[in-house]
Structures are given as structure tokens and as C-alpha cells.
Design a protein around this nucleic acid. Structure first.
Lengths: 214, 214
DNA sequence: TGGAACTGAATGAACGTTCAATCAGTGAGT
DNA sequence: ACTCACTGATTGAACGTTCATTCAGTTCCA
């Protein structure tokens, strides 16, 4: 609730549009501060200007609130993945890497990813969560595979299997995110470099000069 | 507690050596059945022939018990990673892949990995957990990098950066494990295949026939 | 006989949830 | 213009349950 923590939530609109949006914001804050294990109705209420009983007027209960919160988070995640706004497939691919494995991530990004890792772990047990993450992973892979297909059409990439490549790269990105969120190590730099080496040797067509890749 | 669930815990010795081992076994069962969020002292006590108050005689409290349990799990994990018992680096590498991303994993393996994903997520919040996973990841990467170094010495692999390769491959394996534990998808087959393609094109020296790789 | 292993019952705190009661606003009927 | 009925938002005080933990007492064994 101090100034520093508020600024690190800049990822959210400072003034939420309505009460339900404010509840989502409060839930996010409580999750970041106390972790999923410490995410209680009380704590959500504390991060929220109105009373905690109001939560039950807007949601059927804690489970329903959290499932809605998960949808909310995944929508944010999907909205931020770079789409077709780039000149060619190589640029878009670079943009996706930079976005998901940034060189020096902003604290708010790191916090968001930590929250996602915590939420995802619940999917091992919670069926609704699992359904959402299945759908979200498919979306991410499909977006990535589309870039690869585009690259092949443009003659920039070789004729690889886009789905297979997407499956591996997405797994690698998720693995690096998980590692960043759950260890003190800083291996994501290594992962990023080796992922680029993989792209150069495996994806890039031979007539394209590798040096032009960032 | 039925026959089927008991057999799926075959990964543990059926008769634990002492009471503390029995407590670890009970904790594992409770974690698998109820998830980390539902892992209570009561539930651990239920999976355990003696009384739940006995847990406090052997451990200082729930936190201490769970930290010890995490050590216990990570020791198991480290013990099962293939070591130098193979003829050459390629065989050992294949063994590590087969072990961490098996074609059709035994249910007990899948359950173990799901438990690991849940435990790891706690490391975002819990400092002791984070320390353990940092150490465990370093161990896994170092073991993998050692194989790569061995392969380079043997002339089977190119002169790549072993640490960089290890960082990426380990991230990919963790990502695939996480995905398997938290979604309904079955993308690990794709990941496995593409990981092998990466090994062929990036790691394998050019005079080695790729077909001999499983 | 003394200490370690073990137990059942109890405790207070924290949990999710409920509920009667207010409050602000809106539209209808007169 | 006035009020009545109704609605959704909001609150504070409760509720019963479950949680981790304690402890006095018992059994086991060296």
C-alpha cells in the first residue's frame, strides 16, 4: 500500500473503470504481496477501497472470483503478445522474444510473470484453471506458428514444421519464465542467446545473412 | 487410500524405514491427492498410520516439515537423473531426454512432476523454497553441461558453449514438464522431436551420422 | 526408571460466507 | 412537485468451520 508498491502496479489503470475492475486490481495486488497461498478474501478486501462483503455481491464466492481473475489475467497476457504489426516475420519473431524474455525486465513485468507462474501451478489440481491454460497455451503457440508460416511464405525461413517449432520455443519461453520467477539465478540471458542461435541455424533460410538478426 | 492410488505411489518404498520417512511419504500422498493449496496437517495425518500430533514431535511445525519435504523431493529428483553410466555422451544425452520427457510417462512419474510444479510455484514467495530450487536447477544444468563437455572432448559434439546449451535445454525441459502438468494438451511429443532436431543441427559434429541418434 | 515415541482433546486465530440493514438512485402514478 | 415502490451497491457484525498448534498424559523400550 506504500508509494513504491503502487507504482509497481502501474501495469493496471490507476483508476479502474468500475467496481469489478477494482476488484480485479485488488486481487492482483493481494496476489503479488502475499502469494497465491496467502490470497484470502480478507487480503483482497484490504487492497480494495470498499468492504470485503461487497465481493460476494459481485461474485458467487472465492472460487468464482478467482476463476474470473484468471480469465482477466490471461486476456491481458494475450493482448500484449506482438501481432502482425511488423514489417516481416523476422521482426515479429524478434519482438515476441524481446517481449517474453526481455533483456532487463521492468519490475512490473517480472511481478506479472511471477503471478502467472503461481496461477498456472493451480491448474495441476483445478479443472477450470487447467481449461483456461490449455486454451491460452494453444493461443500462444498458434500465434508463434503463424509467424513461422509467414516467414516460410516470405522465403525468410526454411520449410520447417511450424507447429513443432512453436511447441518447442513456447516451452522454452515458459521454462525460462518459470525459472526467473522461482530461482535466484539469471540464466535467461543464456536461454535468449541460445534461442537466437537456434533460430539462426534451424529456422533462417541460407540466403539470409544471419548478422541482420538482432 | 484405495488399491489404485497406493500402487501409483510405488515410487516410494512401500514400508518406510522410520517414522520420518513415513511422514515424507504421507506428505507426498496428501500433496498428490489434494494439491498444495489443500495440503494441511490434518490431511497429512490422515495419510499416515499414527496420529497427527506426532508430526509436531518430529518437526517444528508445518513450515519446517514442508521445507524438509522439499529437500526430500529434490534429492529424489537429483538421484534419478542419468549420470555417467553410459558409453558415450550421445547415449547419456538420449538417456536424459528419455528420462525427463518420456514418450509415454508412467502415471507415477506424471504425478511426481505435477507435485514438483506445485512445489516450485511456492518459490515465487517462499525464500527457503527459492534457495532449494536455485541449487537444484544449477545441479541439473551442470550435469547436462558436463555431458556436452564430454561430447566435445570425445569429438561427437561441436565446440559449442556448454553452459549456454545447458541453460536452454533445461529451460525447455522444465517448460514442457510444466505444460504437461498444467494443461490438457499433448505437445511434449513435438517438443521432444524438435529438441532432437536442435541437437542434430546444433550440437552434433558434422562427421557423425545423425541417423544413429534415436 | 527415564527418556523418546506417541495420543486425544483442546485452543485461539483465521478462514469463507451469510445476512439484516442502510444508502443512492430511478421510474411510475397522482 | 411529491411520494411510493423498487433496485443495486454497500456495509458491519455475525456465523460455523477449519486451520496450525499445544499440552497433559500414556505407552514403549533400553
Amino acid at each position: 500500500m506504500n508509494v513504491q508498491s503502487v507504482s509497481s502496479y502501474a501495469f493496471f489503470d490507476d483508476e479502474p473503470a468500475d467496481t469489478r475492475a477494482a476488484i480485479m486490481q485488488a486481487t492482483y495486488r493481494a496476489l503479488c504481496e502475499h502469494g497465491y497461498a496467502g490470497l484470502t478474501i480478507q487480503r483482497i478486501g484490504d487492497e480494495f477501497p470498499k468492504s470485503k462483503s461487497l465481493l460476494y455481491h459481485h461474485y458467487d464466492g472465492k472460487d468464482a472470483l478467482l476463476v474470473e481473475f484468471l480469465s482477466f489475467m490471461l486476456r491481458r497476457f494475450e493482448a500484449t503478445i506482438p501481432d502482425r504489426e511488423y514489417e516481416d516475420a523476422r521482426d515479429q519473431l524478434t519482438a515476441i522474444f524481446d517481449h517474453t524474455l526481455p533483456r532487463d525486465p521492468a519490475p512490473e513485468r517480472a511481478q506479472f510473470r511471477a503471478a502467472m507462474v503461481e496461477l498456472r501451478a493451480q491448474a495441476t489440481t483445478n479443472r477450470a484453471y487447467r481449461t483456461h491454460f490449455t486454451r491460452n497455451d494453444r493461443f500462444f503457440r498458434e500465434r508463434f506458428a503463424a509467424v513461422v508460416r509467414r516467414g516460410i511464405e516470405e522465403g525468410v525461413f526454411r520449410e520447417v514444421d511450424p507447429d513443432r517449432v512453436a511447441a518447442m520455443v513456447v516451452a522454452t519461453i515458459h521454462g525460462a519464465m518459470q525459472e526467473e520467477a522461482t530461482t535466484n539465478g539469471a540464466e535467461s540471458a543464456h536461454v535468449r542467446e541460445e534461442l537466437r542461435a537456434y533460430v539462426r541455424s534451424q529456422l533462417l533460410a541460407e540466403n539470409v545473412t544471419p548478422e541482420t538478426i538482432g
